[in-house]
Design a protein around this nucleic acid. Structure first.
Lengths: 129, 129
DNA sequence: CTTGACCTTCCCGTGACTGGAACCCCCACT
DNA sequence: AGTGGGGGTTCCAGTCACGGGAAGGTCAAG
């Protein structure tokens, strides 16, 4: 399978797939003409990566998870550890964003949004009481 | 005031302040020795920027907001528009992260986290039903 | 006079790609 | 035999908002 077909099958842009090869996440074969040739296990790996990335795991986490996936003697505790650390990061991020949304939401509601210059948003940013 | 004092006062790293000068967000004066000299209005601007960044506005948004802040003839509608667009982005991001948290949370809960290899997290990533 | 805390500029690196240039390969059509 | 188009390839540059660190100038204290 060539990269275009793999891109269609996995939903990953060809550029991304090449990048994943670059950083050693996937190792397709090469045809005589230099084209990448993907076996089904490569496609499987790419799907794995796509799902892991969709869950927000970093590339390095993906590398770790892939290694665990391929290691028959893994301990599920190791997988869980990675996942829980990431989950904690997500939750921290959500908390940050919720705080932003609350503050910004109040400010937006308080702003008249007309043609006059008075604006509680700018007042807040300007540090006015 | 030199950059170190400004850094202390605003809580912004000196590197960040220099960067903000680089991209034209602040224009401190220069002493004979080449040191940056910040007036109170510069510090005020930097505090403004710090608060806007803390609310997650992009640098370009900050630039826009600063311009509006300094424009006495602004319409608050313009400010509100920028803020609401950003709020929408925040909410979209929160929705994404909530989805990730839910999925990942279920998977983490379902994982035994022991020394055996069986792991619903990897099963999910691997696309197993 | 030296030490050490400042300050300066400059350049590289980050994460995870994305866009684009310049070029090669293959098949179909005229 | 040429040509066109739709693949593929590499490599370079850019994104965003800084942070690290090198190499060197400046200043106040001891």
């Amino acid at each position: 399978m060539n990269i275009g077909d793999v891109s269609t099958q996995t939903g990953l842009p060809a550029k991304t797939i090449r990048y994943y090869e670059d950083i050693g996440l996937v190792k397709p074969l090469r045809d005589d003409n230099g084209y990448r040739v993907f076996r089904s296990q490569d496609v499987h790996k790419l799907n794995f990566l796509g799902r892991a990335r969709a869950l927000g795991f970093t590339i390095e986490d993906c590398r770790t998870l892939m290694a665990l996936y391929e290691d028959e003697t893994r301990a599920s505790a190791d997988v869980k550890k990675v996942a829980r650390a990431h989950l904690a990061q997500i939750e921290a991020k959500i908390a940050d964003l919720n705080a932003m949304r609350d503050t910004l939401g109040h400010l937006v509601e308080a702003c008249a949004g007309d043609d006059r210059p008075d604006c509680p948003i700018l007042q807040d940013l300007g540090g006015e009481p």
